[in-house]
Design a protein around this nucleic acid. Sequence first.
DNA 1: TCTACAATTCAACGATCATTGAATAAATGG
DNA 2: CCATTTATTCAATGATCGTTGAATTGTAGA
Lengths: 119, 119
Amino acid sequence: MDERQAVAAFSALGQEHRFRVVRALVTAGPDGLAAGTLATEIGVSATNLTFHLKELSHAGLIQSRREGKSVIYSAAYEGLSDLIAFLMRDCCQGRPDVCAPAVAALSACNCPPGDSAHV
Amino acid sequence: MDERQAVAAFSALGQEHRFRVVRALVTAGPDGLAAGTLATEIGVSATNLTFHLKELSHAGLIQSRREGKSVIYSAAYEGLSDLIAFLMRDCCQGRPDVCAPAVAALSACNCPPGDSAHV
DNA sequence: TCTACAATTCAACGATCATTGAATAAATGG
DNA sequence: CCATTTATTCAATGATCGTTGAATTGTAGA
């Protein structure tokens, strides 16, 4: 991930509705959610949602697949993970005191049993 | 950090010039950089830089202090750290596979010896 | 105090963004 | 094939954002 991609990703997340979409999709898991479901959940029109979905997709944060009449959107975990990694790498430049608290916070994160995220 | 703050922070980072400012300030360390130095380093006018600095400051990502004729800006490590933590917490919701690679990437991060960032 | 330097405020502008409604496309069931 | 459901495209709009240049404020040195 280079600077351009990172900025695009941050820009995509820097909008209330889009942020909620990502959150909803991450919560939904790999199964994802249909566009229509997302629209009602977020509280925006179908047209408007399409606009935001395209933005997020272009930023590599979500992906889609067709399933019957519906189009199912799901979180692009790799993209999200890359973004976090990039942010941490950038912030860590000679200053681990930035990353340390973030990593500590991760330990308090409610991950399921058998959790592999706690290094 | 709540959703509103997180979105504001992402929005602030979602702009090329502002992103570079943060990067420069994080690299510069606690001593920070004078506004004028930043302006030439980033390649924007003083007026324009002030606009971006206000945005970043309002998002809690940087801070400033006056020193003689200059105003010195520096990274707000706590704000940055909070943002990373928030992003990780959000992404980890039932899906540690998102955070795990990010944490792994952190291990590859070039932190100084005596490094406290590797949990 | 006068001058010079450093940074910010202000007003203006073009550009991009978010949202809307109508029209279109894709898929399914009768 | 037709009607219905679901989602996207398109054109238009108001709003916000990024940038600029001129004027202003704050600080220090002669």
